[in-house]
């Protein structure tokens, strides 16, 4: 058949990175549906999606993973917290700016960890590099999320920051857990 001559197959390595990005987008969506209430604040598992996307996939494919997550939510799949969807939620949900922050955070974490587009094996990343990469990602999430929240709600910046401050130690705890997972060798060969 003549048409088959022109089929431009996606190369094997790209297929592997692509399916990981797809599954990490789905995992981010799945983790967003679980949260553990601790007193007045909620311990959300969503940031793990960003951490793993950056560490495992690097800036390009880690970014693709989080972008896919946002896109399917905008398209109407109930992937945001509490099964919500829609562009309105990305703009206005209490985590709206944070969703966009996760996307940029994954890119930043991936760029710092892998210093290039092609991801290295996670086992080759030193602990200090991982700590810097994930800390930068968390910083980016808040640097985008807090001003975004201030703009959406009309609150002064300082007050928006004060509202979000209780979540920062929790996110640092998650960061520690993510690094412990990598160090535990659970992701060897991935």
């Amino acid at each position: 058949m003549a048409t088959e001559q022109s089929v431009d197959l996606v190369d094997d390595e790209t297929v592997g990175l692509f399916t990981k990005a797809v599954l990490l987008a789905a995992l981010t969506a799945g983790l967003a549906q679980l949260s553990i209430p601790i007193g007045p604040v909620v311990f959300s598992l969503q940031p793990f999606g960003m951490f793993f996307a950056g560490l495992l996939l690097g800036p390009l494919w880690g970014g693709v993973a989080l972008l896919l997550y946002l896109l399917v939510g905008i398209a109407g799949a109930p992937v945001f917290s509490n099964g919500t969807a829609g562009i309105g939620y990305v703009i206005a949900g209490k985590t709206g700016g944070f969703l966009v922050g996760f996307l940029v955070g994954a890119v930043v974490a991936g760029a710092i960890a892998h210093r290039g587009i092609a991801p290295k094996p996670v086992a080759d990343l030193s602990v200090p590099v991982q700590v810097v990469a994930l800390t930068a990602a968390v910083a980016v999430v808040y640097a985008i999320g807090i001003p975004w929240m201030a703009v959406v709600t009309g609150l002064p910046f300082a007050r928006a920051a004060a509202l979000m401050a209780p979540y920062i130690p929790l996110d640092l705890l998650k960061l520690g857990i993510a690094i412990a997972i990598v160090q535990g060798g659970y992701l060897a060969g991935r």
Binding site: V22, A25, A26, A29, V72, A77
Partner: peptide
């Protein structure tokens, strides 16, 4: 990718 995420989200 979007089609696949929508397909796989319920499984994950």
């Amino acid at each position: 990718g979007m089609a696949l995420v929508v397909r796989l989200f319920p499984l994950v």
